[in-house]
Design a protein around this nucleic acid. Structure first.
Lengths: 217, 217, 217, 217
DNA sequence: CATGAATGAGTCTTCATTCAT
DNA sequence: CATGAATGAAGACTCATTCAT
């Protein structure tokens, strides 16, 4: 998240007053939304959790929707930043995919409240917000696309695959995995699933084939 | 779901005669929810769209939540019924998967309003409703599991795959595909994606291998 | 209750169709109102308890209010009829008072549901209904007045007492006693209180005086 | 009731600053309830009468029921406070009774709206509210009990009287008297009845006896 | 910048009553 | 006479947002 993560981007709000207060509200929002869901997360409770007055929230955010968007811009942005870093270091496309999935599961896996918001409550919002969320996710999608291109270039990924479908295969699987983990109560370790998930993504239902060294029978 | 889908199952509600009115309300609910989302779908508008008085809605449904659940029980149930039928006819696990995906995309692909409800607005509801939705989906999940077992038995699916991950691979991908289609405005043909999606599911990012005789060319 | 108890007296309703059904509804009304109070007693439940359709209720009663009034006219009327009989047989004013109180407590004491309606739920209604209730009670008040006149004539009651106040002394005490009994859960025997209550009414707080034969000290 | 009568006692509600607004709502509630009864007293009308927005009512009161309870706690509490004061000054039990009745009639006699609420509309509420009302009245009942004990000690009240019946004699008569006054349209002066009522309570129907020196002539 | 009291639009649900059959 | 499905008016309560201090 390259600098511009703070404040509502030209909305005329949040002209970088008290950044600590801004972050306090954002953190409180994640907490309260994780607990009650977007629709039941009252501004009053977020304000109280952040230790500010109700009205103060509106000095930093345009409205409730803006809080949610900002939470996401912030957290997803952080993940994307790390993912970009990690990707740069990857020796191969496969390794890159592996590290992306590990990173995604790792980040959400240690913050159940955040995962709760992105996986469950995020979906409670109106279609127009969801579209905006799509924009926020775009850098992450781009990273996946790059990774795939690279894999094709390296000759390990099938060049016949539809790009859009590939993206949905990867993100849909990751998403469903995190959702199931959250809804199950986050009882197991999410990050430890990453290798098996990547294997499934790489080889599909049929599994790795014989000519990848040897076939099984 | 076989025939007795009408009415709220022992809730003492919805035992009224006029099945056409029951269906009218259900259809109206899908319409209004597709348009405005669950939270903004007012009973008054559903009633008006169904051509009945507000109070009449409560002769057939316990409350707003019950309408949503019923919509899903009805529609998902229908899909599951068809999927069960189709599965019985499939000559192989692969064919079964192919027909399941085709069916799922086909059913939702011709009713954008319904897809809108299941993919977008469905997620606006509280955790307890979501849990109930999980129950409704269970038969579909079971079908996927059976299909996978069969494939393993047939020697075409990898026995090393984690079952849970497999289920998430398949459903996550399908779900993400439908969601993307809905959010894009349903501008393209959803059903026509099914073969490519199935290929991605079967072979993953690496694609089908040489020893699978021929593929795509 | 001299004959005219059945039906709404010239309201154009209940032209003596099926008297058994009329009574069934009346009984059901007492039951349901005792249980839930006037405001929560739904016509639908009364109808079901009476074994008739909702609409049928309106063939016998003008509206919900009319049912309540009729219940009272009926039951209070019955009590008044018996009270009139009893009064005629009384050898003295004191004996008459004693029998009136005993009768009142006795009748309500064996029908907690009825007492519940008259003492608790009756009071939930609007002032205009309460006024009508006053009319129904009038014959009973008259009986009390007669009794008092007689007592004055017999030289046992004080001629200086304000008639209205006397009436309120008697009825207020009876009413409060029954109310307390009902609200306590009707755990003790109401009728057995009548003699003590009458003593209190006759002699007040100071109790019977020496010149009434002998003082106890 | 001594000063701290403001606010809903630890309900977390009504801790707002503006006591004048709290009182305005309370006064408005008495007015509207007196006019229309508890059940027909709409929050919107109370709010308008108090000159505040609908929502503001809920800053000071938990709900409609809480308003009613608060009205009573407030007004009955005030009467009880005064009654306690008055009782302390009374030279004898009889004088105490006389002042209690005079006070009760006097307070309600100058506020027909309040009497309307306590005597008529109060009784429209559910049993659980009535029980709470019982608690509010308890101090008043206790005062009556004390008064009676004292009278017995002074040798003017009969020690043979059942305490419970005595309480019902006194309160029932007072209650009935106020109710009748309210339902009559409050056309006469209520307070002026107090002496005659007390006489009735003291001596009952038989009136004061010869050995009570002189009475009335 | 911060506060938090005040606002008031928005909505599900109930239930007495009607009327077509 | 009887039915009971249908009606639709009515009302308490929530909570995002504002603005005077």
């Amino acid at each position: 998240m390259n600098g511009c993560s703070f404040s509502g981007e030209g909305r005329g709000i949040g002209t970088r007053r008290d950044e600590s207060k801004y972050n306090a509200i954002l953190d409180a929002a994640v907490l309260v939304m994780a607990e009650s869901g977007y629709h039941h997360a009252q501004i009053a409770r977020i304000a109280k959790a952040a230790g500010v007055a109700d009205g103060t929230v509106y000095l930093y955010f345009k409205n409730k929707e803006d809080i949610l968007i900002s939470v996401l811009r912030h957290t997803i942005g952080e993940i994307v930043d790390k993912a970009t870093e990690t990707s740069a270091k990857a020796a191969s496309a496969e390794e890159q995919l592996r590290s992306l999935v590990r990173l995604y599961f790792g980040e959400l896996g240690v913050r159940r409240d955040l995962a709760m918001v992105t996986q469950v409550h995020l979906r409670q919002v109106d279609a127009n917000i969801r579209r905006e969320i799509g924009d926020i996710m775009k850098p992450f999608y781009n990273l996946l696309d790059e990774m795939f291109e690279r894999g094709v270039g390296e000759g390990v990924f099938s060049p016949n695959l539809n790009r859009r479908i590939t993206r949905r295969l990867i993100f849909g699987t990751m998403d469903e995995t995190v959702s199931a983990w959250v809804l199950s109560g986050a009882k197991y370790d999410l990050a430890s699933l990453s290798n098996d998930v990547v294997d499934a993504l790489l080889y599909g239902l049929t599994g790795p084939k014989a000519n990848d060294t040897e076939q099984k029978g």
